[in-house]
């Protein structure tokens, strides 16, 4: 069971994000970088499949600057076998389409049963790369998957997808792209042994021509500040009455 897992290094979700002096990017200095949270579910699912089938390997691929090596090592420590970094010194100038094209270029020659991605990265929130990659490689996709059962012959899978107000269950032929939603599994912690092994593994560096972004960011801005609110104190009916009146008559958000 060979899986490819596409991962992205993103600023930790607790980060304060600042706009750079050019106004089109963010200040990278001082940011803590982590594996995109949804990608950890993707990695975990690939590891579990390798364990279930008792054969095969898990290859992680990422596009980004040198610092991404750290995140690939983290995924090695979880148990991934091989890592490829498609080096791109200017990640902020890319869009998802550029990244998907890079990934497809490297993945197309690989031997795989399934490709996993996170359902979206929590930096640009684009949620595009998985489906774009599927199209570029001409394979089917199941996005936002919270449960996956791969058939014994590895030629098909049943995927449970979270949709508005419920769940959709689809059958997908493999090879295919699966994008991971929270709930798919519980990602493992890295072990001391894993961390030691991760240090000794080699990351394959690929230099390719990264295509230009189609979507051009012209400027970044902060969302408008919210006006200061009114704080009421107490737990009695008068205070509650005042709140309900305000919602009804000032805000006009309740009938």
């Amino acid at each position: 069971m060979n899986s490819i897992v596409c991962i992205k290094q993103v600023p930790d979700t607790e980060s304060i994000i600042r706009i750079d002096s050019e106004g089109t990017g963010i200040v990278e200095e001082g940011l803590q970088y982590v594996a995109n949270p949804y990608d950890e579910y993707a990695v975990e699912e690939a590891l579990r499949l390798r364990e279930k089938f008792g054969e095969g390997k898990v290859t992680v691929v990422s596009v980004g600057p040198q610092r991404v090596e750290e995140t690939i090592r983290y995924v090695f420590a979880m148990g991934a076998d091989e890592g490829i970094l498609i080096r791109d010194a200017e990640p902020q100038k890319r869009d998802s389409f550029s990244v998907a094209q890079c990934l497809a270029e490297v993945i197309k020659d690989k031997d795989y049963n399934v490709i996993f991605c996170g359902k979206q990265a929590v930096d640009d929130d684009s949620a595009q790369v998985g489906a774009m990659l599927a199209e570029l490689l001409d394979i089917p996709q199941a996005t936002v998957v919270s449960k996956l059962e791969v058939a014994d012959d590895k030629k098909a899978a049943v995927a449970h997808r979270e949709i508005e107000g419920g769940e959709e269950i689809i059958e997908i032929q493999l090879p295919g792209v699966i994008t991971a939603q929270k709930g798919l599994n519980e990602p493992r912690f890295t072990s001391l042994r894993g961390i030691k092994m991760a240090m000794s593994k080699t990351i394959e560096i690929r230099e390719i021509n990264v295509p230009e972004a189609k979507m051009k960011v012209m400027s970044l801005e902060r969302p408008p500040e919210r006006p200061p609110g009114r704080i009421l104190e107490g737990e009695d009916a008068d205070v509650i009455g005042e709140l309900v009146q305000a919602l009804r008559n000032e805000a006009k958000v309740i009938p």
Binding site: I17, D123, D124, D125, K216, V217, L220, P223
Partner: peptide, 10 residues
Amino acid sequence: IFAGKLLANA
């Protein structure tokens, strides 16, 4: 972007 911490004009 960044779950609403910033807005991008593109």
